[in-house]
């Protein structure tokens, strides 16, 4: 936060503010209580309307005076209590970040017990608590649904389904927590250059047969073992340590069409899950893990 004005500008603000207030007070008082208000019509040069209507021959309503007077009193009290007069912080010591700290102190006090309970409970206990799971769903909605969908079912052939059994980066609570906390970066390189277009075609077709009986005899197998097996495994079962998905099941993160598979191989994929460590606290992360590992 930028600080309050200091030095010359602080003095400037104080002087202009106080001078304005004093001038205003003098102006208001002189209009209402000056001695010559009553004999203003003495001047021969004053215009007169409607026989005797002249400038100043009827005082402004008194409630105007009280309104202005009240506003001035309010200003003086305000400037004494709150920051406003240059570098003077006011007698209450109020500040925006002070108020925020106060809100957080209250917030922490209110939720500390609940947080401690959540952090020390088992996932099973959390999953059995309907109220906490409702909270977890709200957390999911606020932080996760934009990519993974409101139902967690994945979206756009880019963002994984979190409701099925397949977990690209591992299904254990620890692995899921790690994914949420630190994010994940998938790095599947583009294989068009080493494989050539024909190779991409063959490997794509081979990958589709993985997990079936035809796989062993497919011509794409040679190049698959050479280029793909290191991450995805010889049998295509994937490797959660590398975020390499299983290719032998029917789950296709980027789409199950031959075109989509071809595109993945040719251009590579760089799925990115942002880290939520900064945005969520331990209790919130644990609730999300409980929600996601719920059967």
């Amino acid at each position: 936060m930028a600080d309050l004005p200091s030095g010359f500008w602080s003095g400037w603000i104080v002087v202009v503010t106080i001078a304005s207030l004093l001038t205003l007070a003098w102006l208001v008082l002189s209009v209402y209580f000056s001695a010559d208000a009553s004999d203003a019509h003495a001047s021969e040069h004053e215009p007169v309307w409607d026989e005797d209507l002249r400038e100043g021959n009827s005082a402004p309503p008194l409630w105007w005076f009280w309104l202005l007077f009240g506003a001035m009193i309010f200003s003086v009290i305000y400037l004494m209590l709150y920051p406003g007069l240059g570098a003077f912080r006011g007698m209450l010591g109020w500040s925006q970040h002070g108020r925020l700290d106060g809100s957080y102190a209250e917030f922490d006090q209110q939720f500390e017990a609940a947080r401690t309970t959540i952090v020390t409970s088992s996932l099973g206990d959390l999953q059995g608590d309907a109220e906490l799971m409702a909270t977890a769903e709200r957390l999911f909605n606020r932080n996760c649904s934009a990519c993974h969908g409101e139902d967690g079912g994945g979206q756009a052939n880019l963002f994984p389904n979190l409701m099925d059994a397949e977990w690209q980066w591992g299904a254990t609570p620890e692995q899921i927590e790690q994914s949420i906390r630190m994010g994940r970066n998938a790095t599947m390189p583009a294989w068009l250059a080493p494989l050539t277009e024909q190779g991409v075609e063959q490997v794509a077709a081979y990958v589709q047969t993985l997990g079936t009986a035809q796989a062993t005899t497919h011509p794409g197998q040679v190049q698959y073992s050479q280029f793909c097996a290191a991450c995805h495994g010889v049998d295509g079962s994937g490797n959660p340590m590398l975020g390499a998905p299983s290719l032998s099941d029917d789950n296709w993160l980027y789409g199950d069409s031959l075109d989509a598979i071809r595109l993945s191989i040719a251009q590579g994929r760089n799925g990115h899950m942002p880290a939520f460590n900064e945005q969520l606290d331990d209790a919130q992360i644990k609730l999300l893990v409980a929600l996601l590992t719920r059967q």
Partner: peptide, 10 residues
């Protein structure tokens, strides 16, 4: 950093 580049594009 809250969303991925892919998400922003879509």
């Amino acid at each position: 950093g809250k969303y991925s580049d892919d998400w922003h594009r879509i």
